[in-house]
Simulated assay, not measured.
Amino acid sequence: MAQTDFRTPALDALAARIIPREHFVFSTETARDKFFNDTRMLDVKQWVHNVFRTSPTSMVDHMVDNLALTGSEDLLDLGCGNGFILEHIRPHLADGSITGLDIAPAVLAAAKDRLNGTATPCRWIEGSADDLSMLDDNSFDRAMANYMIHYVPDLNRCFTEVRRVLRPGGLFMLTTDRPDSMLEMYDVHFAALEAMGAPKDLVKATPKGRLSLENGQEQLEPYFDEVRLISWQDQLRFTDPAPFMRFYEVGHNHCCASSEEREGVDGEFLSELRDRVRAQVQEAITSKGHFAVTKFTGSFLCQ
């Protein structure tokens, strides 16, 4: 089935107008101790992307196709999170093995519980993706890093290490977004911030701008002989503001506005921000029948 193209001149114009070039940057410690000290952020994102998508195939289906598994590969998942993606990939590795690595003990424990008792051997490692010193050279047929590379402190070391642990002919899949992915969410968010006279340093793009589909090729090419980009699109559609607001507040920390403590961004501020965003979403639902959030994403396949 052909993939729907959600990109339109109107969305391109909107992106050019509202998406800042500057992106948020967060430390590994912030990711470990705040974002992923439990699984709520991941749980909400995964639920929303599954229930409200319009594509008949999921992003995980797309990842499985990209990995081209035969069933006996040894797979390394960098930033495995709560194991949601691995749960779907595991049946394609009936005679292979899985190694999941993550910096956050809470989500790593959730991944271990999720795959507990499966016949595919699983190993779980607490650590950072830029230090794979516990892993042998040439020990994996596949490695992947999905929506997490922006948290890794040293990308040069990470890619050097991935190259080292991959076997000859092995494949590294790095999945991330375009800078204008989910731009409708950013549109209502930035409009609310502007109406509130919010601090200018809150008007930044997703932290995935550190390595996005726009700039990832040039960052990966020094480490791999071949880097191919396979793009993917989807559109989330909401007819009730409530699930979108969970996605916005919990899944994305108010588009990162509440990711770290800062002066003036308190409970009262965030409550008003949510009210203003919710009103815009409800207005779109009333006038158009749904509120759309367009996902422009994809994977770099590196060999």
Rank of each mutant, 00 (worst) to 15 (best):
N146H: 11
V107P: 14
P168C: 00
Q235M: 07
D95P: 12
L166N: 06
P105M: 06
E161Q: 10
R17V: 04
E73V: 03
D240A: 04
L93S: 08
M173V: 15
D137Y: 04
L213T: 04
M63N: 13
F244M: 00
G83Q: 09
L93H: 07
Q46W: 14
E218N: 14
T294M: 00
N66T: 15
T8P: 02
D77R: 08
L135K: 03
H189R: 01
K295I: 00
T175P: 11
A10D: 02
L115C: 06
L108M: 11
F6Y: 12
G169T: 05
L86W: 11
E263G: 11
A292P: 03
N156Q: 11
S231Q: 11
P91I: 04
F26I: 07
S27H: 06
T54G: 09
Q219P: 09
L76R: 05
V51D: 03
V293K: 00
E263P: 14
T118I: 15
V51R: 04
N82L: 10
F6E: 04
T176H: 01
W47R: 15
D177T: 08
A145C: 15
K200F: 06
I89M: 10
M148T: 15
P243R: 05
A279E: 13
M41K: 14
D131N: 12
D43K: 07
S58H: 08
H62A: 12
F190L: 05
V188D: 00
E221A: 13
L67M: 14
D137L: 05
A94G: 12
L155D: 06
G267Y: 02
K112H: 14
D137T: 11
T239N: 13
D5C: 01
V162G: 07
F24K: 10
R210H: 07
A257S: 14
N215R: 04
F238G: 03
F269A: 05
G216H: 09
D234I: 00
R32M: 09
L193H: 01
